[in-house]
C-alpha cells in the first residue's frame, strides 16, 4: 500500500510542483491525441454517414471492414504504420518516423474506424424517412445532414468518446512509431510503460493518475453535453 500512497504523493508533488518534464509529456499527449481525435472525426464521421445513407456495390464489404477496423490491435497498426514510414518504406521519404506526426497517423488509423462504425449505427437508428421529411419542408442537403446529425447527437457523442478513448489509452502503436524518445515523442502512456519497467513505480503512478484525470475531464465534458437533456423513462406502475 505504501507504494501507492507514495506514488500519489509523488504525483501530486510532480503535478503541482510544476515538474517541467511531466508537464511537457502531458502537453504532448494532449496535443497528439487531441489532433488525432479531431482527424479521426473528420474522416470517420463522413465515412459513417456515407455508409449509412447510400447504397452501392461493395457497401457490405466496406461496413465489414469498418467493423473489423473498430477492433484493430494497436500493435498491428503500429507495425504497419512503421513499415510504411520506415526510411526504406513506401512513405519513408516523408522522414516522419519517430516524430509526433507518426504517432498522430497511427492513432488516426486506430480511431477512425471506431468513429465511422459508431456514426454508421447512430445514423441507422434514425427513421430513414426523416431525411425525406426534412427535404419536404425545404431543407437543403447540408441542412438535412445537420438536422440528422443533431437528431443522432447522443450516439454521435458516444462515437467521439469512444474514438478519444481508443486514442488516449493506446500505447503499442505510439511506442512503435514514436520510439518513446525523451523530450520528443514520449507521451503519458509510453512514459508509464518505461517507468514501470524501470521500477520507478511512484513516477509511473503519477503519470497514470494524470492520464486518468485527463481522460475523465474530457469524458466528463462530453458526457455533460450528451446528457444535458435527459430522456425520462416512464416508470412502470
Amino acid at each position: 500500500m505504501d507504494l501507492i500512497w507514495n506514488g500519489i504523493a509523488t504525483a501530486l508533488a510532480l503535478v503541482f510542483g510544476g515538474d517541467a518534464e511531466v508537464w511537457a509529456i502531458t502537453w504532448l499527449s494532449l496535443k497528439v491525441s487531441g489532433l488525432a481525435t479531431i482527424l479521426s472525426l473528420i474522416i470517420g464521421m463522413p465515412l459513417g454517414i456515407l455508409l449509412a445513407m447510400s447504397r452501392f456495390p461493395g457497401r457490405a464489404l466496406a461496413v465489414a471492414l469498418v467493423n473489423t477496423g473498430m477492433g484493430l490491435p494497436p500493435v498491428v497498426v503500429g507495425l504497419f504504420v512503421s513499415i510504411f514510414l520506415w526510411r526504406s518504406g513506401p512513405l519513408g521519404f516523408l522522414d516522419i518516423i519517430y516524430t509526433p506526426t507518426a504517432i498522430v497517423i497511427a492513432q488516426v488509423v486506430i480511431a477512425f474506424p471506431i468513429v465511422a462504425g459508431l456514426t454508421l449505427t447512430s445514423f441507422q437508428t434514425l427513421n430513414p424517412n426523416l431525411a425525406l421529411q426534412l427535404a419536404g419542408i425545404g431543407a437543403s442537403k447540408a441542412q438535412t445532414l445537420w438536422f440528422l446529425s443533431k437528431e443522432a447527437r447522443l450516439p454521435l457523442l458516444a462515437a467521439v468518446m469512444a474514438g478519444f478513448g481508443g486514442i488516449i489509452s493506446e500505447v503499442g502503436a505510439s511506442m512503435m512509431v514514436g520510439g518513446n524518445i525523451r523530450g520528443q515523442t514520449r507521451v503519458l502512456t509510453t512514459a508509464t510503460v518505461l517507468e514501470t519497467a524501470r521500477g520507478n513505480f511512484d513516477l509511473a503512478i503519477a503519470l497514470s493518475l494524470i492520464l486518468l484525470a485527463l481522460s475523465f475531464a474530457i469524458n466528463f465534458v462530453l458526457t455533460h453535453i450528451q446528457q444535458r437533456q435527459l430522456t425520462r423513462w416512464p416508470k412502470p406502475s
Partner: peptide, 12 residues
C-alpha cells in the same frame, strides 16, 4: 421546394 410543404404518413 421551399414554396411547398410535405406532411407524411409518419409525423417524423
Amino acid at each position: 421546394r421551399r414554396r411547398m410543404a410535405s406532411v407524411l404518413q409518419e409525423p417524423l
